Simulated scan of single mutants.
Amino acid sequence: MNILSRRFDRIFWIFDANIYYGSKVFTIVFFKRIFASKQLDEKEESGAISLEAINRSNLGQIFNNRYRLEQVLSDSSYLAIDIKRERCVVIKHIQFKTNRSVYLNEITNFIGLETARLVKLTDSCDLIPELIDYVKAGSNFYLISEYIEGKTISEELANFQPSELDIAKLIKEILTELQLLHDRNIIHKSIEANQIIRRDSDFKLMFIYYGNIDEKCYRTMYDECADSIPKKSHVSGVPCSTPRTWSSEFLAGNPQFSSDIYATGLMGIQLSIGISLRDIPMNPATGKYLWENYCQFSDRLVSILNRMVEDSLRIRYKTIPEVLDDLDLFIE
């Protein structure tokens, strides 16, 4: 695509957004397209191929004319080499499972604005891998970010059973770093042991963070599932799986800073007993996790963890400093 056609395409993209969103958002989108493109590398949608179409046993193919796929990291993430800059990157595949053009237009604009925000954030925050680029191909989006060499918390604790002191110190370390995000008025929303990496170069914790994009994926899927149920159906609930690390207020669309405390507490419980959250039994009457019998922790640490994962916002810790005060007393 030559420069003239790119500019022509960009003008029509902005013009369509103006019709759909009105003049106020037109200005926001206009500046996003003009100025964010200086921060993100130029997107070459015509060269984007679906990662799902790539034979996983035949890596080495070039994605978007720039990224050579080297390794499958997960169902949706790939390690690649940026052949233009000779550096390792991670490609995150995000797919919004919807055929509605209205949803897709909204999602496209959302991703553009959110990635522009993430670029600005990762430029100034050493807790989050740098977002380098993003590519759109139909209903598929690919976020390309800095590769952090190190081990996730899951990998770090994979070969030994942590003691209660190990768990207390780890939670303290995670919450101390997480407070820096809260100080920026950012709720992480996706705290999991495989989303936190200890960087090899300085042993600093790094948080994998895709802003509000993960939540947007879930909300879109939830809406699609809800709409698929007949209005007069007696089926209870919506046939969508929800991450168990999400608190009730998060699922209700009202995340709080204490929602990150809830997720961190669940991660601590899971690491303590070595059982997946999906396999931890729950009291059907209270909704509380029945995990204490799987380990021999003191009542004090059990009390701290249980308060972190308390469903009631009134009882749960409201701020990280509150948790740290109790953890410090326990550790001492």
Results as ranks from 00 to 15, higher is better:
231 K>Y: 14
146 E>I: 03
332 E>V: 10
62 I>R: 04
79 L>R: 15
183 D>W: 02
283 N>V: 02
191 I>T: 10
279 D>S: 00
151 K>Y: 10
216 K>G: 01
147 Y>D: 02
71 Q>M: 07
16 D>Y: 11
151 K>V: 03
74 S>E: 09
134 Y>I: 02
238 V>Y: 05
24 K>H: 13
109 N>A: 10
147 Y>K: 09
238 V>W: 03
196 I>V: 11
274 G>F: 07
307 R>G: 07
153 I>W: 00
159 N>G: 10
160 F>I: 02
56 R>A: 04
93 H>R: 09
160 F>G: 03
8 F>L: 15
64 N>H: 12
30 F>K: 15
140 N>R: 09
69 L>C: 05
299 D>K: 08
245 T>D: 04
315 I>W: 08
34 I>Q: 13
245 T>L: 11
49 I>Y: 14
66 R>H: 06
80 A>T: 05
146 E>D: 07
124 S>L: 09
21 Y>V: 07
6 R>V: 01
188 H>D: 09
286 T>D: 04
103 Y>F: 14
170 L>T: 03
137 A>S: 15
70 E>F: 02
271 L>Y: 02
315 I>F: 12
85 R>D: 11
316 R>L: 08
321 P>V: 02
4 L>M: 10
179 Q>F: 09
153 I>G: 00
129 P>Y: 05
79 L>D: 08
54 I>M: 13
49 I>R: 14
320 I>W: 05
16 D>G: 02
22 G>E: 15
227 D>I: 07
113 L>N: 06
194 N>Y: 00
165 L>W: 00
262 Y>G: 07
162 P>K: 03
187 I>M: 14
224 E>T: 05
133 D>S: 12
193 A>T: 00
31 F>V: 12
139 S>H: 10
246 W>S: 04
324 L>T: 02
158 A>N: 09
171 I>D: 05
197 I>E: 04
148 I>E: 09
54 I>N: 06
298 S>P: 01
64 N>G: 13
70 E>H: 05
139 S>D: 12
140 N>Y: 11
269 I>T: 08
158 A>I: 01
259 S>W: 05
304 I>C: 04
171 I>N: 10
280 I>N: 04
224 E>N: 04
279 D>F: 00
162 P>G: 03
11 I>K: 09
233 S>L: 07
69 L>Q: 08
285 A>G: 03
326 D>H: 14
41 D>G: 04
90 V>T: 10
133 D>A: 11
322 E>Y: 07
330 F>T: 06
100 R>C: 13
244 R>C: 04
249 E>T: 01
185 N>T: 00
150 G>C: 06
257 F>K: 12
256 Q>V: 00
261 I>H: 09
208 I>A: 10
75 D>T: 11
294 Y>S: 09
49 I>V: 15
69 L>P: 01
236 S>C: 08
36 A>K: 00
176 T>L: 13
145 S>R: 14
168 A>I: 08
212 N>F: 02
28 I>E: 15
239 P>S: 11
69 L>W: 01
203 F>Y: 15
163 S>F: 03
84 K>H: 12
253 G>T: 06
326 D>S: 10
257 F>M: 11
132 I>E: 13
135 V>I: 15
195 Q>R: 12
169 K>E: 11
228 S>H: 06
155 E>L: 08
171 I>W: 03
6 R>F: 09
152 T>S: 15
21 Y>T: 13
